[in-house]
Computed example of a mutant assay.
Amino acid sequence: MLSPASTETVRATLPAVRGAIGEITPLFYDRMFAAHPELSRDLFNRGNQANGSQRRALAGSIAAFATALVEHPETRPDSLLARIAHKHASVGITADQYGIVHRYLFEAIAEVLGGTVTPEVAAAWDEVYWLMANALIAIERRLYEEAGVANGDPWRTCRVVARLQETEDVVTFLVAPVDGGAIPAARPGQYVSVQVQLPDGARQIRQYSLSGRPDRALQFSVRRAAGEPAGEVSHHLHDHVHPGDRLLVSAPFGDVVLEDGDGPVLLASAGIGGTPMIGMLAHLAATGATRRVIVVHGDRDPLSHAFRADLDQLVRKVPDASAHVWYEHPATDWPAHRTGLVDLTGVPIPADTTAYLCGPLPFLRSVRAQLLTAGLHPSAVHYEVFGPDLWLGHDGS
């Protein structure tokens, strides 16, 4: 991994880089987008750029990778790399783009840190960057091969074959390749990227979890997101995409997938985070699973709870499954101990349970802490987030 000399240099300068990265990343992105506006227009999520989450995620991933290199030099942080590589593959990142990022990132580092960046420091951090970049390039190349797509081109033109209104602000789309080809293989818990052309000509991309397993289509669900430009793609899909229309949809990707086995499994979600969990539950029901399945979901109210009926039906199909639902604002008579936020205190959870979580970051933190208190090992708790991962590098990630 990192050479001994670079390890000591990175260890010594990591606090300074970490402390300045809030200044480095805006400068980096501004300059890169000025030189390559096509990246901002057609590749990077404009909503995440506007709210700063993409910049915080980049800072967190670089700091986490550098920290792992100096603290655990014999172990590559594969969980961190896999999370990033799957997202990259789903939008068609190519090896040459790492060179573009390197140029503008290191220009920003040099400008912000000034004389601190000696040739020795620059060489050490250059080594960190290319260790991470080359590892990601290799993983992404493998992911493209496994998906059966060309390197950097995960897209297929699909036709919308059905549209289902789940709630007032959640719509499910079923799509199939227009060429009549086979539906891409997917594992329960994965997502697809969807690319749409917006009125200003930008081709923006968003990821949506697969929320079911129909035989001749891919099924994903979209919540109408608030704010602009954060919700520009979801608004477009809700307002303008109907059966018969065409969409560019990627092959399925995602590293948080339901693993086979007989041990107990917990599927915990909040809000639209229920989409990958309902996909996992549908897989368990369709494959005749007999393992213990604990489904936990929190939502604002019953009308906001997408797949509420599906959850009831699927739980009844799995012999040893149970559902535990919390509403912050119940519309009808509802047990007091299931009103408010998710509280696992009264839910029996075997110590050998494997848990899968999806939802907002506060929900993930709360539920993960409760599961660790209940006796689960950090390695048994897996999570998926929508948008940039602001939790990279934590135990159990």
Rank of each mutant, 00 (worst) to 15 (best):
Asp301Met: 06
Gly231Asn: 04
Ala309Tyr: 10
Leu357Pro: 00
Gly114Trp: 10
His377Glu: 15
Glu23Met: 14
Ser6Gln: 12
Pro154Glu: 03
His394Asn: 12
Thr157Asp: 03
Arg308Thr: 04
His236Ile: 05
Glu146Phe: 11
Trp391Cys: 04
Val296Ala: 00
Ile100Leu: 12
Ile278Arg: 02
Cys158Trp: 02
Asp262Gln: 09
Asp179Asn: 00
Phe106Cys: 09
Ala147His: 00
Arg300Asn: 09
His329Thr: 15
Pro276Ser: 03
Leu14Lys: 03
Phe173Glu: 01
Gly375Arg: 12
Ser304Tyr: 13
Gly396Tyr: 15
Val128Gly: 04
Phe307Gln: 01
Asp179Trp: 01
Met277Lys: 11
Pro378Ile: 02
Thr116His: 10
Ser221Trp: 14
Pro119Glu: 02
Gln195Val: 14
Gln219Trp: 03
Leu81Gly: 08
Val222Pro: 00
Phe33Cys: 02
Asn45Ile: 05
Phe386Ala: 11
Leu266Asp: 13
Ile24Arg: 01
Gly273Trp: 03
Leu267Arg: 05
Pro319His: 14
Glu140Asp: 05
Ile84Asp: 08
Asp343Ser: 13
Asp215Phe: 15
Leu58Lys: 01
Leu105Ile: 11
Asp389Val: 11
Glu384Ala: 05
Ala122Ser: 08
Pro348Tyr: 05
Ala66Leu: 10
Ala135Phe: 12
Pro388Trp: 12
Pro4Met: 14
Pro252Trp: 00
Glu259Tyr: 14
Thr7Arg: 14
Glu74Asn: 11
Ala286Ser: 12
Glu228His: 13
Ala369Glu: 15
Arg246Met: 08
Ala64Lys: 01
Ala286Leu: 05
Ala64Pro: 07
Gly244His: 11
His240Pro: 00
Thr118Asp: 07
Tyr208Met: 01
Gly254Arg: 07
Leu248Arg: 11
Pro264Met: 14
Val256Ile: 12
Ala35Glu: 06
Ala309Cys: 02
Gln204Cys: 03
Gly92Val: 03
Ile100Glu: 01
Gly273Lys: 03
Tyr104Ile: 15
Ala331Tyr: 14
Leu143Ile: 10
Gly271Cys: 14
Pro177Thr: 02
His329Ala: 15
Val257Arg: 00
Val149Pro: 00
Pro188Lys: 12
Trp155Ser: 01
Ala95Asn: 08
Pro252Asn: 05
Ala122Val: 01
Arg365His: 15
Leu372Arg: 06
Leu27Met: 15
Arg300Gly: 10
Leu311Pro: 00
Pro362Glu: 11
Arg76Val: 15
Pro360Phe: 05
Val91Thr: 11
Gln207Ser: 08
Thr339Gly: 07
Val117Thr: 06
Ala110Val: 13
Gly274Lys: 09
Pro214Glu: 00
Gly396Val: 14
Cys358His: 09
Ala331Glu: 15
Leu357Thr: 04
Thr75Ala: 14
Ala309Gly: 02
Leu247Phe: 07
His394Tyr: 13
Leu113Asn: 08
Gly227Phe: 05
